[in-house]
Design a binder for these strands. Structure first.
Lengths: 222, 222
DNA sequence: TTAATAGTGTCTGTGAGACAATATCAG
DNA sequence: CTGATATTGTCTCACAGACACTATTAA
């Protein structure tokens, strides 16, 4: 039926977290079995396993689970990269995903062959992985301004100053926190837990949680 | 190397135009050679030809060229739909695109087995094509509000009232044209040609063109 | 001149953003 | 109390949107 050679079908994941206060992403050393570029640092990924993966998102989830031992709290399709020459093996097609994970979740995770690098200091990567990572960062920056996306980089309960710090780190903007507080509160994407964070040196900040389980988005008007 | 059966690699295109003042999209009758669902109306698409297509976008462009005989003025990747059961043949992966074409371009095109249906009256389609079309419509609606996207549904020179009519047709909003005019003009996405459209019954409207060759997008602030 | 459509100017409400003032914590 | 951080309140500016007014066309 199909007269043409099938493309190689892959998934790749750009997994973000906060490390030492900086937006960082996960790179993995490619194993010996993983030709080509084995031994090199790259975005975690691999071929779709049509016998066990229900769909591409499922394949991406498996990749994260295999590397980190956790199910990613947030995982969204980014873009599909394709072409004759992007992979030396053959015509290939990689469905790219990006994921957000709070740093607290990663503390008890195996770091075998894994490395987190700051998003503004990504080394040269094989394939078109630098382009994938760049698009993931752009998407994250953009979506941070009109959704509850950044709450997925924080633990279930967090404070406005914490969210503001992540916002500044990701977007590079330096708006004052009072305006930021008002905006996120009357957008209604987060809600107060009624508790405060005790134990700090100073005034205890109010705790909030994401409203609803999934991502909240704002709509534009005209 | 690859122990798993390769997925079927496809592209599908949701091609929008304006017909009789309504947002419409293209459906094509699947040919006899096109198992499964041959004879049914579906989104135009097909397998990626790894021997002639440079990448998936190229494959989508070929699909449009084959059906309509034209290179689509606007073609953008939408989403990749995948899974074990979405195609009866086998585990499949379809990179979906959407395209915008002015109705004037389609006037001298072969209509062999082609049909345009209003976007709010799409019949039942095979595969997950209804989900693809729904996402394409949602993307078009959303992006219409903050980009020059809708100008690709109009000829190279157009008037503000024409653009406004398309805007209302696509988004369903009914904002008054004065506000719309001011917004699109100081966004700077279109520019006056200096000419007016002669021959109407009433005051001749100013003509505009898209500024730049490609899509213009607005950025949000916070 | 009239009817119909196109384009411009003015007013208002909303919300981002800056800044000041108040509140709360530990020492 | 003091110093540091958190939160709230006030003011301003930008802009979407409504509406009224002016402009242009053909009959």
């Amino acid at each position: 039926m199909n007269r043409y050679e099938d493309p190689l079908a892959l998934v790749d994941v750009t997994l973000f977290t906060i490390q030492d206060g900086r937006l960082s992403l996960l790179l993995a050393t490619r194993k010996n079995a993983q030709e080509p570029y084995c031994g090199a640092l790259a975005l975690p990924g691999g071929t779709i396993h049509t016998d066990e993966d229900e769909d591409a998102q499922d394949a991406a989830r498996r990749v994260v689970r295999t590397k980190l031992g956790i199910d990613p709290p947030y995982l969204e399709q980014l873009y599909t990269f394709s072409g004759r020459t992007r992979d030396p093996r053959r015509w290939s097609l990689s469905v790219a995903y990006y994921s957000l994970v709070p740093e607290q979740v990663l503390e008890e995770t195996p770091i075998e062959g894994l490395e987190f690098v700051p998003a503004d200091a990504i080394p040269g990567l094989p394939f078109d992985h630098n382009a994938i990572a760049a698009m993931a960062i752009a998407r994250l920056r953009s979506k941070s301004t009109y959704s509850s996306l950044l709450t997925f980089l924080l633990p279930p309960e967090f404070t406005i100053p914490e969210l503001h710090a992540v916002y500044e780190q990701v977007t590079g903007s330096t708006t004052n926190i009072a305006a930021f507080r008002k905006k996120v509160l009357d957008e209604g994407m987060i809600e107060p837990t009624g508790q405060r964070r005790k134990g700090g040196q100073h005034r205890a900040p109010d705790l909030y949680r994401r409203r609803g389980t999934g991502l909240q988005e704002l709509k534009r008007t005209i």
